[in-house]
């Protein structure tokens, strides 16, 4: 019975909160005095789909690459070779200390002119991966630091070899610790990829910008853009929550 009344309480409050937000949006729209016209969605559906897929591709490839970069940077930073430690340190601090938009302009210029990479998609993915890799390195570093030393000692006590300890104890516990944060970072990658529109990578945001420049349906276009990003990020948020629950043995 207690559970039931709690459920009712939750549902009622969720409804109230949603209503309030909707009402605020509604009032704003009324004050703008615009009428809705979403017909552009049908009209440009293949372009929008293409942009959407481009964003998905950018994010997926970017995630895999940044994971790779992040793991290496974290290992270097936790390792014993001082030279690599400093390289990793410089990288992480520079990336985390400067805005993505500046990095995009700078790297695009460098990559494009000095290294001759003219493909916008490739440059975009590289820039995004380098940027997100620094954040992933931090997630992994924090995960490694949070591992309880008693677990490694216990591994030794039961007789595990070094490689067994890494394979059976350290890596599973590390993954459990960092997986929820990694999912969150994936979500960030999806959102951050929108900034690649400034170097004219035709991903979702750039597509919508182009469309809205044609039809001047700014409000509807960006509202729809938001919905499309939510279609990607809300499932991820749910997955992140599930992981968090599943791996709650950590705490």
């Amino acid at each position: 019975m207690v559970l039931r009344s709690q459920l009712i309480k939750k549902v009622v409050n969720a409804l109230l909160a949603s209503l309030l937000v909707l009402a605020l949006v509604w009032i704003s729209v009324l004050r703008l005095g615009v009428s809705f016209d979403f017909s552009f969605i049908i009209q440009f559906k293949s372009r929008i789909l293409q942009g959407f897929l481009m964003t998905v591709a950018l994010s997926l490839i970017g995630f895999v690459l940044s994971l790779f970069i992040g793991i290496i940077a974290a290992l270097w930073q936790n390792g014993k070779i001082l030279f690599l430690k400093y390289i990793s340190s410089i990288y992480i601090n520079f990336i985390r200390g400067t805005p993505l938009i500046m990095q995009i302009y700078l790297f695009y210029y460098i990559i494009g002119t000095a290294w001759g990479v003219n493909n916008r998609f490739v440059s975009g993915v590289l820039i995004l991966s380098v940027f997100e890799g620094a954040y992933i390195a931090e997630i992994i570093r924090a995960g490694i630091q949070g591992l309880a030393p008693t677990q490694v000692e216990a591994a030794r006590a039961v007789g595990f070899t070094k490689s067994q300890t890494i394979k059976l104890v350290i890596i599973p516990q590390l993954i459990a610790r960092i997986l929820p944060a990694l999912v969150g970072q994936f979500s960030s990658i999806i959102k951050d990829s929108s900034l690649l529109s400034i170097i004219a990578v035709i991903e979702l945001t750039q597509t919508i910008r182009e469309i809205s420049a044609l039809n001047f349906r700014l409000f509807e276009s960006y509202l729809f853009l938001g919905v499309l990003y939510l279609c990607l990020t809300i499932p991820l948020a749910i997955v992140g929550k599930i992981f968090e629950k599943q791996f709650s043995f950590e705490t």
Binding site: A154, A157, Q173, F249
Partner: peptide
């Protein structure tokens, strides 16, 4: 030999 720790000696996962 075997070893028993004061606490948290079990593998948490």
């Amino acid at each position: 030999t075997g070893f028993v720790f004061q606490q948290n000696g079990l593998f948490k996962h």
